[in-house]
């Protein structure tokens, strides 16, 4: 996954809920691209809720944590909530490691131990 072509967005705005479907790899190089696209949509749509869907993300390092925390702050500024969905166990592990769950009141559903099934996570803003 070496080019920005592997990063795609699907932004939906219905019922005031904005969903950003992230796919590809999230590292320091690609995080900037995700950040710019999501923030542009946030400021344009000013939704009441933002969902970041990680089900298409094959790799994420701590740059993804920075991306999430930055979007949490952006969402707060416009009065929107932030929900994280489609998190693999691996991504959940990163969130727990970073303490984002404790800092932000994140809720991680651990209904399954299977790597291929995803957890629903909500950050209460």
């Amino acid at each position: 996954m070496l080019t920005r072509d592997h990063v795609s967005f699907d932004l939906e705005n219905g019922e005031g809920i904005l969903t950003a479907r992230l796919s590809g790899e999230i590292d320091h190089h690609t995080a900037r691209i995700f950040r710019e696209e999501i923030d542009r949509a946030l400021l344009r749509e000013t939704p009441r809720a933002l969902t970041l869907d990680f089900s298409g993300v094959g790799f994420m390092d701590s740059s993804g944590i920075g991306l999430i925390v930055g979007r949490l702050e952006m969402a707060r500024e416009i009065g929107a909530t932030l929900t994280l969905s489609g998190l693999s166990q691996r991504l959940c592990r990163l969130l727990e490691l970073s303490g984002v769950d404790r800092l932000c009141g994140i809720v991680i559903s651990k209904s399954t131990e299977r790597e291929d099934l995803f957890h629903e996570t909500e950050i209460r803003t």
Binding site: A31, R35, S62, I65, G66, L67, G70, E73, S98
Partner: peptide, 8 residues
């Protein structure tokens, strides 16, 4: 910038 997590 607030975009680095400090978790590296």
């Amino acid at each position: 910038s607030g975009e680095r997590s400090g978790m590296g």
